[in-house]
């Protein structure tokens, strides 16, 4: 089994399973904060999947996509945190 097959048939399904578990928490809640951290986790796992896919397909440009995804995910989480706090704050 070469590296491409290993990533596409073993690593990717495992990461996808992690994504599914995060989505279950996203759907279940129960609080908005739970949903926010579930979204944050999907962003992080998505970044890992992109990096793994960059190796499998020998496409280093995809790394830039992963960096942008990390940036967006971070900004989204911070914005959500501000919004959560502002909603009941001073």
């Amino acid at each position: 089994m070469n590296l491409t097959d290993l990533i596409l048939w073993v690593a990717m399904p495992v990461m996808s399973l992690a994504l599914v578990l995060a989505f279950v928490r996203l759907a279940r809640g129960p609080t908005l904060s739970d949903r926010v951290i579930a979204l944050d986790l999907t962003g992080t796992v998505g970044m890992g999947m992109i990096a793994a896919y960059a190796i499998a397909r020998d496409l280093p440009v995809l790394l830039d996509v992963a960096i942008v995804l990390a940036l967006l995910s971070f900004l989204g989480t911070v914005a959500f945190a501000r919004y959560l706090e502002r909603r009941v704050g001073p």
Partner: peptide, 14 residues
């Protein structure tokens, strides 16, 4: 593989 295993653990954890 280590990375994928950790991500799965994070999914189980959440």
């Amino acid at each position: 593989l280590i990375g994928a295993a950790f991500m799965l653990l994070a999914g189980v954890g959440i």
